[in-house]
Amino acid sequence: MDIEKIRKASLFDEKEILNCANISYEMYIGRLGKKPQPMLDNYASLIAAGNVYVTEWNGQIVGILVLLDFEDYVLLDNVAVIPSYQGKGIGKSLIKYAENYAVERGVKEIRLYTNVKMVENISIYKKLGYIAYDQRCENGYDRIYFRKAL
């Protein structure tokens, strides 16, 4: 199997992007008692704004990345990999892409957040050098916020 490069999403990708988000986050519904926010996002709007990136494996979208630009940082708003493709370095490649994206924009920090009940994600972000700096409830979700200096 061959992984393809990360590329900006087009509106033609919307159905596969939504599928990737749904498959990637459905395991958390029971833990959270509701759908995680990435399952509810308006991907057509995010794609149209140029905020969504995808990676494919043999022509199928298996990973997505949503990046939002702010004045002094980039928000890694969502990174998701279809579970059957996890453990192959796809998620790390997407996060590295996000970090490089931020550097190319001239900002010195990347931020992200995850639900406090998504303990697997918290562990990964800490291993990748992200530091927790805040925890709060937003839109009914208990979130922990991370940042990384670039």
Rank of each mutant, 00 (worst) to 15 (best):
G63R: 00
N51E: 15
G106I: 03
W57Q: 08
V119H: 09
L67F: 05
G33Q: 10
V52M: 07
M27V: 07
C20D: 02
I17Y: 00
I29Y: 09
I47H: 09
Y141R: 05
L76N: 11
S84I: 01
R136H: 07
C137R: 13
I3R: 07
E16I: 00
N58H: 10
Y97G: 07
Q60V: 09
N115S: 14
E26Q: 15
S93W: 02
V52G: 07
V103R: 14
E104M: 13
A48S: 14
N115T: 08
Y43I: 03
N19G: 01
W57D: 00
Y43P: 11
K5M: 09
A149F: 11
N22V: 01
N58F: 02
A102G: 11
I23M: 11
E14I: 08
L76P: 04
E120H: 08
G140I: 07
L65W: 06
S24C: 07
K15N: 12
G87N: 12
V52H: 11
G59V: 04
I23S: 03
L67V: 09
S24R: 01
I64S: 01
E16V: 00
D134T: 03
V62R: 00
G63S: 10
E14F: 01
N115L: 03
C137K: 15
Y97E: 04
Y141F: 15
G87R: 09
Y113R: 10
F70G: 03
K5A: 13
V62Y: 01
I64V: 12
G63I: 01
L32R: 08
Q37V: 10
M1F: 10
V79I: 15
V66C: 09
Y113M: 06
I110V: 15
F146N: 07
L32V: 08
S84E: 14
F146C: 10
K117I: 00
Y141M: 06
Y25L: 10
V62C: 05
L150A: 09
V54E: 03
T55F: 08
G50W: 07
Y53C: 02
R105W: 04
K148A: 04
N78I: 01
G106C: 05
E71T: 11
I61V: 14
N115P: 04
L40V: 06
R136I: 03
K5E: 14
